[in-house]
Nucleic acid binder design. Sequence first.
RNA 1: GCGCCCUUAGCUCAGUUGGAUAGAGCGACUGACUACGAAUCAGUAGGCCACAGGUUCGAAUCCUGUAGGGCGCGCCA
Length: 554
Amino acid sequence: MTKTIYEEIISLLREAVQAVSRELGEKENKVFTWSEDKFFLTLPSNEKFGDYASNIAFFGATFYGKSPRELAQLIDAHIVKDGKLLAKTEVAGSGFINFFIARERLYRELAEILSAKDKYARTSAGGKKKIQIEFVSANPTGPLHVGHGRGAATGDALARIFRALGYDVQKEYYVNNIGNQMQILGRSVQARFEDKEIPEDGYKGDYIKEIAGQVPQKSAPNEDFFRQFAIDTILDWIKKDLEDFGVVFDNWFFENTLYEGRDLKKELLTKLDHEHPPKSYEKDGAVFVKTTDFGDDKDRVIFRADGRPTYFASDIAYHENKFNRGFDQVIDIWGADHHGYVPRMEAAIRALGHPAEKLKIILYQLVSLKRGSEVVPMSTRAGEFVTLRQVLDEVGKDACRFFFLMRSPDSPLDFDLELAKKHSSDNPVYYVQYAHARISSVFREAEKNSLQLADGSGQLKTLELLKEPEETQVIKKLANFSKILADCARTYDPHWLTIYVQELATVFHNFYTKHRIVTDDRELSLARLNLIKAVSLVIKDGLDLLGISAPEKM
RNA sequence: GCGCCCUUAGCUCAGUUGGAUAGAGCGACUGACUACGAAUCAGUAGGCCACAGGUUCGAAUCCUGUAGGGCGCGCCA
């Protein structure tokens, strides 16, 4: 596993800073401790600021009574510049250190992509750390709607990215298959089946009729049967929808298994109260958890006066179960409509004695559908929700996933169905896929001219022919891929990758229109074929990690 | 009423741990195919980063307040 350019620069920078610390420490008898999270590089917006930039000198400056610029110059003087990694560095502005990568290093990176192929940018950063991502987890009371699609796309893409970075990832779906809603579901189907009035609070959608229609006539159904039948049927739908959406879970966890063959109440209370002071108490016959001790604004009931557990009891037990399975990090992905639930869940984790950082809850904002400028009405209450299936059938998996992943989970998503269907440059999915197809097409053309890339043809000697600014731009963009993946993992946000593949497509298209690839100059043609090969590898890999296909023709 | 999220170009949005001259795409306008896919590319115009204070060497980014929008506030799930 070779080090990335980014990692190499960071370690040079760290060494330089340490050297400066020692020097100033000896001279002035005081040592500033740079916090480790300040060692990062940004990708400057303007290329005259170099390929990477660091603002590290802004941090120790006042401590040493120097200006950031002075400190930056000191650090800069200690950075090793041997031409293998860095062509030069510069202190600029009020104290930035700008790094310019040596051409030689860029060619080596390109060669690395060509030989690593789809293993490029795979790192061991995760160190086999066990992560669990729980997402979708919609109650099996109806088909998935578009909102669930956003959760599904986000969770699945994150899982793929974390895996690529060497984490041991498990994807899980939690099924609420017991409780009041399930009783109501069962009764609704039963009423349909028996042609009776659906209960006031029952489910009234057409899909209830559909389920009732599938109940075998000769069975002797009772309420339990209807409930189970309904749950099974709906779960089958959900699984099928997810599968067609490209999402396959490693594990389906059923709520009822939390209760089977054990006294959950006793176990939970033992867990909560084994340390002094106890974290639970009884009031008016009900059992409360003192979540207020951990930042929640009121204590929460986990067992009602009649002894029945609340939803929250299941959730606490479920998360305890996750931690018992040995995950170092547990990620929950919820729709923003559940945000009110976050403080109590986090409080519960701490009440159970787990460090708060072990649980990461990602909230994604809601999705609204549009056709052009017209808003598609959606209201769960009126039963007017648009299903994931409908959108999937209409716009296809690739566009659907790309649109869901195009925005940060934080920002509300306007999903324009018309745009997603368009096969034109307005549509970012096709823009990126087109770049990939175009490259495949060039290779078909090259073969006609009996030009082929043999394994290992990406020799440095050949690659060094790539000197045009547009070529350099492409190589630099390619070299950023691993940093982008790391950013996605650090921020738990895959949308950086959707932006990245678009940018990569842009620099490629720009190069393509300016320079001909297949020419009489055989060596140069080979060099350029290698370059676009690398582009197609990274685009394919990037799209793969988003769960989107990279077609060779379209 | 209380809490959380949001407000950046005509539109849809980037701007990640505070950093340099706030960036894309669409739309508008101008230009580029007698050789590899024009589903493409190049260029021009377009901004009081909702508003008002504050913290900082430095704020679209952090804090406080105001206005507007979304969501949530059960011994429901």
